[in-house]
Design a protein around this nucleic acid. Structure first.
Lengths: 224, 224
DNA sequence: ATCGTAATACTCTGAGTCGAGTAATCGAGT
DNA sequence: ACTCGATTACTCGACTCAGAGTATTACGAT
Protein backbone atom coordinates (compact mmCIF):
# COMPACT_ATOMS: atom_id res chain seq x y z
CA UNK A 1 0.00 0.00 0.00
CA UNK A 2 1.54 3.22 -1.19
CA UNK A 3 1.80 5.80 1.57
CA UNK A 4 -0.31 8.85 0.84
CA UNK A 5 1.57 12.14 0.79
CA UNK A 6 0.59 14.70 3.45
CA UNK A 7 -0.84 17.97 2.23
CA UNK A 8 0.61 20.19 4.92
CA UNK A 9 3.93 21.76 3.93
CA UNK A 10 4.91 21.56 7.60
CA UNK A 11 5.34 17.82 7.09
CA UNK A 12 7.84 18.57 4.34
CA UNK A 13 9.70 20.94 6.65
CA UNK A 14 9.85 18.21 9.31
CA UNK A 15 11.29 15.73 6.82
CA UNK A 16 13.76 18.34 5.62
CA UNK A 17 14.95 19.13 9.14
CA UNK A 18 15.30 15.44 10.01
CA UNK A 19 17.29 14.88 6.83
CA UNK A 20 19.84 17.25 8.40
CA UNK A 21 19.92 15.58 11.78
CA UNK A 22 17.66 13.87 14.36
CA UNK A 23 15.56 16.25 16.48
CA UNK A 24 12.62 16.40 18.84
CA UNK A 25 9.50 18.30 17.74
CA UNK A 26 10.06 21.33 19.88
CA UNK A 27 13.54 21.74 18.45
CA UNK A 28 12.05 21.55 14.96
CA UNK A 29 9.76 24.42 15.77
CA UNK A 30 12.57 26.55 17.26
CA UNK A 31 14.83 25.84 14.31
CA UNK A 32 12.16 26.74 11.81
CA UNK A 33 11.49 29.95 13.70
CA UNK A 34 15.16 30.85 13.95
CA UNK A 35 15.52 30.43 10.19
CA UNK A 36 12.39 32.53 9.59
CA UNK A 37 10.64 29.64 7.90
CA UNK A 38 7.40 30.43 9.77
CA UNK A 39 7.00 33.26 7.25
CA UNK A 40 6.72 30.72 4.46
CA UNK A 41 5.37 27.63 6.23
CA UNK A 42 2.42 27.78 8.61
CA UNK A 43 3.65 26.60 11.99
CA UNK A 44 1.79 25.94 15.21
CA UNK A 45 2.25 23.39 17.95
CA UNK A 46 -0.98 21.53 17.48
CA UNK A 47 -0.26 20.89 13.83
CA UNK A 48 3.41 20.13 14.39
CA UNK A 49 2.76 17.32 16.86
CA UNK A 50 0.01 15.74 14.81
CA UNK A 51 2.05 16.03 11.62
CA UNK A 52 4.97 14.32 13.35
CA UNK A 53 2.69 11.59 14.67
CA UNK A 54 1.24 11.04 11.23
CA UNK A 55 4.69 10.82 9.61
CA UNK A 56 5.63 8.34 12.31
CA UNK A 57 2.58 6.17 11.62
CA UNK A 58 3.41 6.16 7.93
CA UNK A 59 6.94 4.97 8.64
CA UNK A 60 8.55 8.07 7.15
CA UNK A 61 10.24 8.89 10.45
CA UNK A 62 11.05 6.78 13.55
CA UNK A 63 11.46 7.56 17.23
CA UNK A 64 15.13 7.18 18.02
CA UNK A 65 14.86 7.73 21.78
CA UNK A 66 12.82 9.53 24.39
CA UNK A 67 14.72 11.44 27.04
CA UNK A 68 13.47 13.13 30.15
CA UNK A 69 15.41 15.77 32.04
CA UNK A 70 14.27 16.42 35.59
CA UNK A 71 10.54 16.56 35.85
CA UNK A 72 10.15 18.16 32.38
CA UNK A 73 7.92 16.50 29.82
CA UNK A 74 9.54 13.77 27.77
CA UNK A 75 11.23 14.69 24.53
CA UNK A 76 11.00 12.17 21.75
CA UNK A 77 13.83 12.45 19.29
CA UNK A 78 12.90 11.41 15.75
CA UNK A 79 14.98 10.53 12.73
CA UNK A 80 14.10 10.17 9.08
CA UNK A 81 13.76 6.73 7.45
CA UNK A 82 14.91 5.82 3.92
CA UNK A 83 11.25 5.86 2.84
CA UNK A 84 11.03 9.34 4.36
CA UNK A 85 14.05 10.52 2.37
CA UNK A 86 12.48 9.31 -0.85
CA UNK A 87 9.12 10.91 -0.04
CA UNK A 88 10.85 14.18 0.80
CA UNK A 89 12.88 14.49 -2.40
CA UNK A 90 9.94 13.41 -4.54
CA UNK A 91 7.61 15.84 -2.85
CA UNK A 92 9.99 18.78 -2.86
CA UNK A 93 10.87 18.12 -6.49
CA UNK A 94 7.22 18.15 -7.44
CA UNK A 95 6.51 21.37 -5.58
CA UNK A 96 9.44 23.03 -7.32
CA UNK A 97 8.69 21.79 -10.80
CA UNK A 98 4.88 21.78 -11.02
CA UNK A 99 2.89 24.98 -10.65
CA UNK A 100 -0.53 24.29 -9.12
CA UNK A 101 -3.60 26.40 -8.31
CA UNK A 102 -3.11 28.17 -5.00
CA UNK A 103 -6.49 29.53 -3.89
CA UNK A 104 -5.24 32.66 -2.21
CA UNK A 105 -7.53 34.90 -0.18
CA UNK A 106 -7.23 37.87 -2.48
CA UNK A 107 -8.03 35.85 -5.57
CA UNK A 108 -11.13 34.47 -3.83
CA UNK A 109 -12.13 37.98 -2.81
CA UNK A 110 -11.60 39.31 -6.34
CA UNK A 111 -13.76 36.53 -7.75
CA UNK A 112 -16.60 37.69 -5.46
CA UNK A 113 -15.96 41.42 -5.76
CA UNK A 114 -19.19 42.05 -7.69
CA UNK A 115 -21.02 41.41 -4.42
CA UNK A 116 -19.95 44.83 -3.15
CA UNK A 117 -20.93 48.02 -5.00
CA UNK A 118 -18.00 49.41 -7.05
CA UNK A 119 -18.01 52.62 -5.03
CA UNK A 120 -17.18 50.64 -1.89
CA UNK A 121 -14.46 48.63 -3.58
CA UNK A 122 -12.37 51.63 -4.65
CA UNK A 123 -11.31 52.77 -1.15
CA UNK A 124 -10.70 49.15 -0.12
CA UNK A 125 -8.28 48.60 -2.98
CA UNK A 126 -6.64 51.94 -2.26
CA UNK A 127 -6.06 50.77 1.28
CA UNK A 128 -4.57 47.51 0.02
CA UNK A 129 -2.19 49.44 -2.20
CA UNK A 130 -0.82 51.44 0.68
CA UNK A 131 -0.45 48.32 2.83
CA UNK A 132 1.42 46.61 0.01
CA UNK A 133 3.69 49.60 -0.37
CA UNK A 134 4.35 49.57 3.35
CA UNK A 135 5.28 45.88 3.34
CA UNK A 136 7.48 46.49 0.33
CA UNK A 137 9.38 49.24 2.10
CA UNK A 138 9.81 47.01 5.16
CA UNK A 139 11.30 44.33 2.93
CA UNK A 140 13.63 46.80 1.21
CA UNK A 141 14.82 48.08 4.57
CA UNK A 142 15.69 44.56 5.75
CA UNK A 143 17.31 43.82 2.41
CA UNK A 144 19.46 46.93 2.69
CA UNK A 145 20.62 45.96 6.18
CA UNK A 146 21.84 42.54 5.03
CA UNK A 147 25.64 42.42 4.61
CA UNK A 148 27.18 42.18 1.16
CA UNK A 149 27.81 38.65 0.05
CA UNK A 150 25.10 37.23 2.29
CA UNK A 151 24.03 33.97 0.62
CA UNK A 152 20.87 34.61 -1.34
CA UNK A 153 20.07 30.94 -0.72
CA UNK A 154 18.87 31.82 2.78
CA UNK A 155 16.40 34.48 1.69
CA UNK A 156 15.30 33.34 -1.73
CA UNK A 157 11.75 32.70 -0.48
CA UNK A 158 11.33 36.25 0.72
CA UNK A 159 12.69 37.55 -2.59
CA UNK A 160 9.95 35.50 -4.20
CA UNK A 161 7.37 36.97 -1.84
CA UNK A 162 8.55 40.42 -2.81
CA UNK A 163 8.32 39.65 -6.53
CA UNK A 164 4.71 38.57 -6.09
CA UNK A 165 3.89 41.54 -3.88
CA UNK A 166 5.31 43.82 -6.52
CA UNK A 167 3.23 42.23 -9.25
CA UNK A 168 0.14 42.49 -7.08
CA UNK A 169 0.84 46.15 -6.47
CA UNK A 170 1.05 46.82 -10.18
CA UNK A 171 -2.10 44.84 -10.83
CA UNK A 172 -4.15 46.62 -8.17
CA UNK A 173 -2.82 50.02 -9.25
CA UNK A 174 -4.06 49.39 -12.77
CA UNK A 175 -7.37 47.97 -11.59
CA UNK A 176 -7.96 50.96 -9.36
CA UNK A 177 -7.14 53.37 -12.17
CA UNK A 178 -9.67 51.69 -14.44
CA UNK A 179 -12.32 51.81 -11.73
CA UNK A 180 -11.66 55.47 -11.12
CA UNK A 181 -11.61 56.64 -14.73
CA UNK A 182 -14.56 54.42 -15.62
CA UNK A 183 -12.77 52.27 -18.22
CA UNK A 184 -13.16 49.05 -16.26
CA UNK A 185 -15.14 46.63 -18.41
CA UNK A 186 -18.56 45.98 -16.92
CA UNK A 187 -18.50 48.90 -14.49
CA UNK A 188 -21.86 50.30 -15.63
CA UNK A 189 -23.71 46.96 -15.25
CA UNK A 190 -22.08 46.40 -11.89
CA UNK A 191 -23.12 49.80 -10.63
CA UNK A 192 -26.65 49.52 -12.00
CA UNK A 193 -27.11 46.08 -10.47
CA UNK A 194 -26.49 47.46 -7.01
CA UNK A 195 -28.78 50.42 -7.65
CA UNK A 196 -31.62 48.10 -8.61
CA UNK A 197 -31.01 45.86 -5.63
CA UNK A 198 -30.99 48.85 -3.32
CA UNK A 199 -34.30 49.99 -4.79
CA UNK A 200 -35.69 46.71 -3.54
CA UNK A 201 -36.12 44.82 -6.81
CA UNK A 202 -36.22 41.04 -6.55
CA UNK A 203 -33.32 39.02 -8.00
CA UNK A 204 -35.45 38.07 -11.02
CA UNK A 205 -36.57 41.66 -11.69
CA UNK A 206 -33.00 42.87 -11.35
CA UNK A 207 -31.84 40.24 -13.82
CA UNK A 208 -34.55 41.18 -16.32
CA UNK A 209 -34.01 44.91 -16.04
CA UNK A 210 -30.26 44.53 -16.52
CA UNK A 211 -30.72 42.42 -19.64
CA UNK A 212 -33.10 45.05 -21.01
CA UNK A 213 -30.75 47.95 -20.31
CA UNK A 214 -27.59 46.13 -21.44
CA UNK A 215 -28.68 43.90 -24.32
CA UNK A 216 -25.07 43.04 -25.14
CA UNK A 217 -25.06 40.90 -21.95
CA UNK A 218 -27.36 38.37 -23.59
CA UNK A 219 -24.61 37.12 -25.87
CA UNK A 220 -22.34 36.55 -22.88
CA UNK A 221 -24.60 34.38 -20.77
CA UNK A 222 -23.16 30.90 -20.17
CA UNK A 223 -24.48 28.38 -22.67
CA UNK A 224 -26.94 25.73 -21.35
CA UNK B 1 -20.79 36.25 22.08
CA UNK B 2 -19.31 37.45 18.82
CA UNK B 3 -19.55 34.87 16.05
CA UNK B 4 -16.15 33.70 14.91
CA UNK B 5 -15.46 34.18 11.22
CA UNK B 6 -14.89 30.99 9.19
CA UNK B 7 -11.48 30.57 7.55
CA UNK B 8 -12.67 28.78 4.44
CA UNK B 9 -13.31 31.15 1.52
CA UNK B 10 -16.04 28.75 0.42
CA UNK B 11 -18.13 30.11 3.31
CA UNK B 12 -17.73 33.59 1.84
CA UNK B 13 -18.82 32.31 -1.55
CA UNK B 14 -21.91 30.75 0.04
CA UNK B 15 -22.81 34.04 1.73
CA UNK B 16 -22.22 35.90 -1.51
CA UNK B 17 -24.48 33.56 -3.49
CA UNK B 18 -27.21 33.74 -0.87
CA UNK B 19 -27.00 37.53 -0.92
CA UNK B 20 -28.12 37.24 -4.55
CA UNK B 21 -31.00 34.85 -3.90
CA UNK B 22 -31.97 31.81 -1.77
CA UNK B 23 -30.51 28.48 -2.93
CA UNK B 24 -29.91 24.90 -1.87
CA UNK B 25 -26.31 23.70 -1.47
CA UNK B 26 -26.15 21.71 -4.66
CA UNK B 27 -27.27 24.72 -6.65
CA UNK B 28 -24.54 26.75 -4.98
CA UNK B 29 -21.98 24.29 -6.18
CA UNK B 30 -23.34 24.25 -9.76
CA UNK B 31 -23.52 28.04 -9.87
CA UNK B 32 -19.95 28.39 -8.62
CA UNK B 33 -18.80 25.90 -11.21
CA UNK B 34 -20.71 27.59 -14.03
CA UNK B 35 -19.08 30.89 -13.16
CA UNK B 36 -15.64 29.24 -13.00
CA UNK B 37 -15.23 30.17 -9.36
CA UNK B 38 -13.82 26.72 -8.56
CA UNK B 39 -10.61 27.99 -10.14
CA UNK B 40 -10.32 30.57 -7.38
CA UNK B 41 -12.19 28.98 -4.48
CA UNK B 42 -11.60 25.39 -3.41
CA UNK B 43 -14.87 23.54 -3.79
CA UNK B 44 -15.88 20.03 -2.85
CA UNK B 45 -19.12 18.56 -1.60
CA UNK B 46 -17.93 17.48 1.80
CA UNK B 47 -16.68 20.94 2.62
CA UNK B 48 -19.68 22.68 1.09
CA UNK B 49 -22.23 20.87 3.23
CA UNK B 50 -20.29 21.27 6.44
CA UNK B 51 -19.58 24.94 5.70
CA UNK B 52 -23.31 25.51 5.12
CA UNK B 53 -24.15 23.69 8.35
CA UNK B 54 -21.64 25.76 10.26
CA UNK B 55 -23.02 29.04 8.83
CA UNK B 56 -26.48 27.84 9.81
CA UNK B 57 -25.40 27.10 13.38
CA UNK B 58 -23.88 30.55 13.64
CA UNK B 59 -27.12 32.16 12.51
CA UNK B 60 -25.56 33.68 9.39
CA UNK B 61 -27.98 31.79 7.14
CA UNK B 62 -31.36 30.14 7.80
CA UNK B 63 -33.25 27.24 6.22
CA UNK B 64 -36.20 28.72 4.34
CA UNK B 65 -37.78 25.40 3.31
CA UNK B 66 -36.97 21.81 2.49
CA UNK B 67 -38.54 20.34 -0.60
CA UNK B 68 -38.54 16.81 -1.85
CA UNK B 69 -39.30 15.79 -5.42
CA UNK B 70 -40.19 12.16 -5.97
CA UNK B 71 -37.93 9.87 -4.02
CA UNK B 72 -34.91 12.19 -4.48
CA UNK B 73 -33.02 13.38 -1.43
CA UNK B 74 -34.42 16.45 0.26
CA UNK B 75 -33.19 19.85 -0.82
CA UNK B 76 -32.89 22.46 1.88
CA UNK B 77 -33.12 25.98 0.54
CA UNK B 78 -31.16 28.51 2.58
CA UNK B 79 -31.25 32.28 2.74
CA UNK B 80 -28.89 34.81 4.24
CA UNK B 81 -29.70 36.59 7.53
CA UNK B 82 -28.96 40.26 8.30
CA UNK B 83 -26.08 39.08 10.52
CA UNK B 84 -24.85 37.09 7.54
CA UNK B 85 -24.95 40.16 5.28
CA UNK B 86 -22.86 42.10 7.77
CA UNK B 87 -20.37 39.28 8.19
CA UNK B 88 -20.07 38.94 4.42
CA UNK B 89 -19.37 42.60 3.65
CA UNK B 90 -16.96 42.89 6.58
CA UNK B 91 -15.12 39.77 5.60
CA UNK B 92 -14.94 40.56 1.89
CA UNK B 93 -13.84 44.11 2.64
CA UNK B 94 -11.05 42.83 4.83
CA UNK B 95 -9.84 40.33 2.25
CA UNK B 96 -9.75 43.06 -0.38
CA UNK B 97 -8.06 45.70 1.73
CA UNK B 98 -5.58 43.76 3.89
CA UNK B 99 -2.78 41.74 2.33
CA UNK B 100 -1.88 38.74 4.50
CA UNK B 101 0.75 35.99 4.33
CA UNK B 102 -0.41 33.27 1.98
CA UNK B 103 1.84 30.23 2.53
CA UNK B 104 1.88 28.99 -1.05
CA UNK B 105 3.40 25.65 -1.98
CA UNK B 106 6.15 27.11 -4.11
CA UNK B 107 7.23 29.54 -1.43
CA UNK B 108 7.40 26.67 1.07
CA UNK B 109 9.42 24.65 -1.42
CA UNK B 110 11.80 27.54 -2.09
CA UNK B 111 12.36 27.98 1.62
CA UNK B 112 13.51 24.34 1.82
CA UNK B 113 15.35 24.25 -1.50
CA UNK B 114 18.76 23.90 0.16
CA UNK B 115 17.73 20.34 1.06
CA UNK B 116 18.28 19.27 -2.56
CA UNK B 117 21.68 19.64 -4.24
CA UNK B 118 21.77 22.66 -6.58
CA UNK B 119 22.44 20.46 -9.57
CA UNK B 120 19.10 18.71 -9.03
CA UNK B 121 17.23 21.98 -8.60
CA UNK B 122 18.19 23.43 -11.97
CA UNK B 123 16.23 21.00 -14.16
CA UNK B 124 13.26 21.17 -11.78
CA UNK B 125 13.04 24.93 -12.12
CA UNK B 126 13.50 24.65 -15.86
CA UNK B 127 10.53 22.31 -15.94
CA UNK B 128 8.49 24.77 -13.87
CA UNK B 129 9.31 27.53 -16.32
CA UNK B 130 7.99 25.59 -19.25
CA UNK B 131 4.82 24.66 -17.36
CA UNK B 132 4.28 28.29 -16.46
CA UNK B 133 4.76 29.30 -20.07
CA UNK B 134 2.26 26.66 -21.13
CA UNK B 135 -0.36 27.87 -18.65
CA UNK B 136 0.27 31.42 -19.78
CA UNK B 137 -0.36 30.52 -23.40
CA UNK B 138 -3.57 28.71 -22.42
CA UNK B 139 -4.74 31.83 -20.64
CA UNK B 140 -3.85 34.07 -23.60
CA UNK B 141 -5.75 31.77 -25.94
CA UNK B 142 -8.90 31.96 -23.81
CA UNK B 143 -8.47 35.69 -23.45
CA UNK B 144 -8.23 36.08 -27.24
CA UNK B 145 -11.42 34.07 -27.75
CA UNK B 146 -13.42 36.32 -25.43
CA UNK B 147 -15.62 38.78 -27.37
CA UNK B 148 -14.78 42.49 -27.35
CA UNK B 149 -16.52 44.39 -24.62
CA UNK B 150 -16.87 41.34 -22.42
CA UNK B 151 -17.10 42.71 -18.86
CA UNK B 152 -13.71 42.42 -17.24
CA UNK B 153 -15.58 42.16 -13.95
CA UNK B 154 -16.30 38.48 -14.67
CA UNK B 155 -12.69 37.49 -15.25
CA UNK B 156 -10.74 39.87 -13.06
CA UNK B 157 -9.59 37.01 -10.81
CA UNK B 158 -8.02 35.15 -13.69
CA UNK B 159 -6.30 38.33 -14.84
CA UNK B 160 -4.86 38.50 -11.34
CA UNK B 161 -3.74 34.89 -11.57
CA UNK B 162 -2.02 35.69 -14.83
CA UNK B 163 -0.24 38.72 -13.35
CA UNK B 164 1.15 36.55 -10.57
CA UNK B 165 2.08 33.76 -12.97
CA UNK B 166 3.93 36.26 -15.08
CA UNK B 167 5.85 37.62 -12.10
CA UNK B 168 6.71 34.09 -11.03
CA UNK B 169 7.96 33.30 -14.49
CA UNK B 170 10.29 36.30 -14.44
CA UNK B 171 11.49 35.44 -10.95
CA UNK B 172 12.26 31.81 -11.78
CA UNK B 173 13.94 32.79 -15.05
CA UNK B 174 16.31 35.07 -13.18
CA UNK B 175 16.91 32.53 -10.43
CA UNK B 176 17.70 29.83 -12.96
CA UNK B 177 20.10 32.12 -14.82
CA UNK B 178 21.99 32.86 -11.60
CA UNK B 179 22.20 29.18 -10.75
CA UNK B 180 23.49 28.36 -14.21
CA UNK B 181 26.10 31.08 -14.48
CA UNK B 182 27.19 30.61 -10.87
CA UNK B 183 26.34 34.10 -9.63
CA UNK B 184 23.68 32.89 -7.18
CA UNK B 185 24.78 33.99 -3.70
CA UNK B 186 25.67 30.97 -1.58
CA UNK B 187 25.92 28.51 -4.45
CA UNK B 188 29.42 27.33 -3.50
CA UNK B 189 28.48 26.60 0.15
CA UNK B 190 25.32 24.88 -0.94
CA UNK B 191 27.16 22.65 -3.38
CA UNK B 192 29.93 21.85 -0.92
CA UNK B 193 27.44 20.99 1.81
CA UNK B 194 25.92 18.27 -0.32
CA UNK B 195 29.35 16.97 -1.32
CA UNK B 196 30.34 16.61 2.32
CA UNK B 197 27.06 14.94 3.22
CA UNK B 198 27.45 12.51 0.34
CA UNK B 199 30.96 11.67 1.54
CA UNK B 200 29.29 10.48 4.72
CA UNK B 201 30.32 13.25 7.12
CA UNK B 202 28.13 13.68 10.19
CA UNK B 203 26.00 16.83 10.50
CA UNK B 204 28.47 18.28 13.03
CA UNK B 205 31.52 17.54 10.88
CA UNK B 206 29.81 19.03 7.85
CA UNK B 207 28.99 22.15 9.83
CA UNK B 208 32.59 22.51 11.06
CA UNK B 209 34.15 21.88 7.68
CA UNK B 210 31.89 24.43 6.00
CA UNK B 211 32.73 27.09 8.57
CA UNK B 212 36.42 26.39 8.03
CA UNK B 213 36.17 26.59 4.24
CA UNK B 214 33.85 29.61 4.19
CA UNK B 215 34.89 31.76 7.15
CA UNK B 216 32.61 34.59 6.01
CA UNK B 217 29.65 32.43 7.10
CA UNK B 218 30.59 32.94 10.74
CA UNK B 219 29.43 36.56 10.68
CA UNK B 220 26.06 35.49 9.31
CA UNK B 221 25.10 32.92 11.90
CA UNK B 222 21.95 33.86 13.80
CA UNK B 223 22.73 35.58 17.07
CA UNK B 224 21.89 33.63 20.27
C1' DA C 1 14.77 36.02 48.45
C1' DT C 2 10.99 36.14 45.50
C1' DC C 3 8.53 37.91 41.69
C1' DG C 4 7.28 37.94 37.12
C1' DT C 5 8.27 36.88 32.51
C1' DA C 6 10.15 34.15 28.92
C1' DA C 7 11.31 29.78 27.26
C1' DT C 8 10.82 24.74 27.18
C1' DA C 9 7.99 20.93 25.96
C1' DC C 10 4.11 19.08 25.03
C1' DT C 11 -1.45 17.76 25.35
C1' DC C 12 -6.28 18.17 24.53
C1' DT C 13 -10.44 19.27 22.34
C1' DG C 14 -13.37 20.83 19.06
C1' DA C 15 -13.83 22.25 14.60
C1' DG C 16 -12.81 21.83 9.78
C1' DT C 17 -11.63 19.26 5.53
C1' DC C 18 -11.74 15.85 1.99
C1' DG C 19 -12.62 11.95 -0.79
C1' DA C 20 -15.30 8.25 -1.48
C1' DG C 21 -19.75 6.41 -1.34
C1' DT C 22 -24.93 6.12 -2.15
C1' DA C 23 -29.01 6.44 -4.55
C1' DA C 24 -32.25 8.20 -7.55
C1' DT C 25 -33.42 10.34 -12.17
C1' DC C 26 -32.71 11.92 -16.97
C1' DG C 27 -31.62 11.54 -21.68
C1' DA C 28 -29.08 9.70 -25.70
C1' DG C 29 -28.43 6.13 -28.14
C1' DT C 30 -29.08 0.86 -29.68
C1' DA D 1 -37.62 -1.38 -24.20
C1' DC D 2 -32.99 -1.16 -22.22
C1' DT D 3 -28.89 0.28 -20.68
C1' DC D 4 -25.18 3.26 -19.79
C1' DG D 5 -23.25 7.34 -18.49
C1' DA D 6 -24.10 11.89 -16.79
C1' DT D 7 -26.42 14.70 -13.51
C1' DT D 8 -28.77 15.63 -9.25
C1' DA D 9 -28.41 15.66 -4.37
C1' DC D 10 -26.47 14.63 -0.35
C1' DT D 11 -23.98 11.52 3.64
C1' DC D 12 -20.25 9.44 6.12
C1' DG D 13 -16.06 8.70 8.48
C1' DA D 14 -11.33 9.19 8.82
C1' DC D 15 -8.07 12.38 9.00
C1' DT D 16 -6.03 17.12 9.80
C1' DC D 17 -5.63 21.49 11.91
C1' DA D 18 -5.74 25.35 15.09
C1' DG D 19 -5.59 27.41 19.43
C1' DA D 20 -5.82 27.34 24.02
C1' DG D 21 -4.20 25.15 28.04
C1' DT D 22 -0.68 22.95 31.31
C1' DA D 23 3.40 22.31 33.81
C1' DT D 24 8.16 22.95 34.58
C1' DT D 25 12.50 25.45 34.54
C1' DA D 26 15.62 29.54 33.68
C1' DC D 27 16.76 34.10 34.49
C1' DG D 28 16.90 38.91 35.29
C1' DA D 29 15.07 42.50 38.19
C1' DT D 30 13.44 44.14 42.52
Amino acid sequence: MAVRRPTNALALAVLSLLSERPMHPYEMSSTLRQRHKEDSIRLNYGSLYSVVESLHKKGLITARETVREGRRPERTIYEITPAGEVMMTDWLSELLSEPTAQFTDFEAALSLVATLPPGDVVPLLARRLSELAFQSRAYEAIRAAVPDGFPRLFVVESDYQQALRDAEHRFVTELLAELEDGTFGGLAVWQRMHELRDEGLSPEQTQRTLLAEFPELEAMMPEP
